[in-house]
């Protein structure tokens, strides 16, 4: 069984600071991590590998050359091969173009039974790339996967919904997107980390020359959407800080609440 896991390297959003004037990210000093949902996708692939003999796991990541750290880390968790897709012509791709590139790479890999992605990346939060890759490859898809079982030639997937869950059976090949509830990711092993930094076929660097994505469909120029401008949302609240003894503050709050038309204080007797 062949599994491909698509991952992305992202800046740790908790650490991200914004330049208020330019509305852009201050990348300096911000640690890069494997996107959290993607960690669950990797872990699930490795669990399948642990549970049977015939599994081969390939990590696929599109990103700048520095994203080699991410593929090496994913490899060290237990994958068989890790590929970084990096090329100037990919730069500025929106989700549509990114999915075009990933789909071309997956076709180039050739064989696959399961493609796992994280549900969404913490930088753009779009949740679009997984489904888009499925569509480009003409595969069935199940997103928001919180449970997964393989039964013969099909997968039985538990998918989270807003108010519960669904159990869906799908043929393979299939594309699945993982959420946090799916599993607890493992840590890489020390020995494997060293191996991840050794040269060999297990760590590959591909450009568009390898995967032959249609140049008229990718990159900033050919993306259907483009970002004209980014900016910092305005938070124009002027806050008043209350002072005094707790009882006074509580009294002041009640005064303010009672003055609001749309807020009804029903009190205890009414319930």
């Amino acid at each position: 069984m062949k599994i491909i896991v698509c991952i992305k390297q992202v800046p740790d959003t908790n650490e991200v600071r914004i330049n208020k004037e330019t509305g852009t990210l201050i990348r300096q000093g911000v640690p890069s991590i494997i996107n959290p949902d993607d960690m669950h996708a990797i872990e699930q692939a490795l669990r399948i590998k642990d549970s049977r003999e015939d599994v081969h796991v390939t990590i696929l990541c599109m990103g700048p050359p520095q994203a080699d750290v991410a593929i090496r880390e994913a490899y060290a968790m237990g994958a068989d091969k890790a590929i970084l897709l990096s090329d100037r012509v990919f730069a500025g791709s929106d989700t549509w173009a990114t999915a075009t590139i990933l789909a071309a790479a997956i076709r180039h890999i050739g064989e696959y039974d399961i493609i796992l992605c994280g549900r969404q990346a913490i930088d753009g939060d779009t949740a679009q790339v997984g489904p888009e890759v499925a569509e480009f490859l003409g595969l069935p898809q199940v997103t928001y996967v919180q449970g997964l079982e393989i039964t013969g030639s099909t997968v039985v997937v538990t998918r989270a919904t807003e108010d519960g869950y669904m159990v869906i059976e799908s043929p393979m090949p299939v594309l699945l997107t993982a959420i946090k509830d799916l599993n607890e990711p493992r840590y890489p092993r020390m020995k494997a980390i060293y191996a991840a930094y050794e040269e060999g076929e297990h760590i590959a660097f591909w450009t568009n020359a390898d995967i032959q994505a249609d140049l008229s469909q990718i990159g900033v120029k050919n993306s259907p959407t483009n970002v004209k401008k980014s900016f910092v949302p305005e938070r124009s609240r002027t806050s008043v800080e209350l002072t005094g003894a707790p009882a006074e503050m509580a009294g002041e709050l009640i005064k303010r609440l009672a003055a609001m038309d749309s807020v009804k204080i029903i009190g205890r007797d009414a319930t």
Binding site: W96, T126, Q128, P131, E132, A134, E135, Q141, E162, P224
Partner: peptide, 20 residues
Amino acid sequence: VQGSEMASSAAVRLRTGLAA
């Protein structure tokens, strides 16, 4: 959950952009 996945796939088929 379902709208997000439907929109993404439809955008690919319709060859158009999608803003999340």
